[in-house]
Design a protein around this nucleic acid. Structure first.
Lengths: 244, 244
DNA sequence: GAGTGGTCTAGACCACTGT
DNA sequence: CAGTGGTCTAGACCACTCT
């Protein structure tokens, strides 16, 4: 008899239940911000005990997929919430105060994705992308220059809508308009010299050191959704990273 | 009858049990890396059910205070582990590979804490601090210049031991030699210009942008333990921040 | 009061590690 | 094999929110 190698297929019941519920959330069975069925309902539906459902949903809550409120219910997480804004924005004033920035649009264009973008956004050749630029302001002063790149196929009509309205936050938009929920991101930080363009927009001398933040945002299944390169003036702000 | 205002003092049983066990860990009742009593033993000792103890210890595991291994036991977390090194070191090569750096000592001195250090390390006036400088090398090339500041009172003998041996990692040292476990840290990142000294040690031109990382490390009860200011050459490395 | 999530129990059984 | 952590159940009760 063949010796059993590694773990063949053991998966706890609660993890299987979790997979099922996550898939239903991913598929959009419940709108963002609305309530899921109660634990008892799930338990009855899947024919398991309440405790098992609890553990499944608890993990989803830990991964910020849902939010639970005692006495009210379990709700699909939404970027409309303040909580989510804060999770994805780490720039803090040197006085320790985190203030969400306003935005000023600097234009938007559509073009073919270059090799680098193809790889980071997992696109095939000849796919087009939308590239938007914005200046983010805190207390009406420019602090960050952002260049946002998304797939034109994934967000159809995004380019056309750009000029008419420029909402401050994008993730809620992706969520409500295109059904794509950003659930995680990776940021690579480095110190670079502000080029002419960056310097001008941030109101600093050309050659000033700025913090470059290269972020890729992901949706379910580690699928990349958006690339965002930010140049941040760290004279009066910094990037806060908490190691807990 | 007075209306009950807010929550008066309700604390779940498992949270109380957790507090008790955390306190015993903090007090050093079990050495780093050694096993805690089993869940059943705790349950018997505190006269609660195993599930309640489980939940208490599960939270401690989530906070990286202990590590659990099925079939073996629950162990007090230790900076000796690879896991912990990685948790507190976020510099990654631009090729995506994380390599823990070597060190070259640049000296160590003892002096009175200035106002700023007094505040960040929560020291009283006239307390002395030890300030050590090191160069951190990856593939034998200098990447980070570190300035480490700790209280002389908290780590007595640290200064004297410095010249004889300069271990690569400090947190294990704090833990084994002084009984102080670093359990969390906050890092403020900004882009600055390399001054003459930084430039020379990192082997870059003076004026080159470098990533400044200002870290404060904490032990139990949010007590600050160490301040570490790093200047990092981000030409071939970057700081990786994962938003999960 | 009905419905929700949150806690707690007692006991059974499973997966894994040691010896 | 005994001992560990991990899963699962069935049911009770608690804290909270809404109507």
């Amino acid at each position: 008899m063949a010796k059993r190698m590694k773990a063949p297929a053991f998966r706890p019941l609660f993890a299987q239940i979790k997979d099922l519920i996550v898939e239903r959330v991913r598929a959009g069975e419940w709108q963002s911000g609305t309530a899921l069925p109660s634990e008892h309902e799930f338990a009855r539906h899947y024919n398991v005990s309440q405790g098992t459902v609890r553990k499944a949903i608890a993990e989803m809550a830990a991964e910020n997929l849902v939010e639970r409120y005692r006495g009210k219910g379990t709700f699909v997480a939404s970027h409309t919430d303040e909580r989510e804004h804060s999770r994805f924005f780490h720039i803090v004033g040197n006085n320790g105060i985190k203030q969400l920035p306003g935005s000023r649009s600097l234009g938007c264009r559509r073009c073919k994705a270059n090799k680098e973008i193809q790889e980071t956004l997992d696109l095939s050749e000849n796919q087009t992308v939308v590239i938007a630029e914005r200046l983010r302001l805190i207390d009406d002063k420019p602090v960050i220059l952002e260049t946002i790149t998304v797939s034109d196929d994934m967000f159809p009509g995004f380019y056309d809508a750009w000029n008419e309205e420029t909402p401050n936050e994008f993730y809620p938009l992706y969520e409500t308009e295109f059904g794509t929920r950003v659930i995680a991101a990776k940021e690579k930080l480095s110190a670079v010299t502000a080029n002419e363009k960056v310097a001008q927009h941030l109101g600093v001398d050309s050659g000033t050191p700025v913090l470059m933040i290269d972020r890729v945002a992901f949706t379910f299944g580690d699928q990349p959704v958006e690339r965002r390169v930010s140049y941040c003036n760290t004279a009066h702000h910094h990037y806060l990273s908490e190691l807990l």
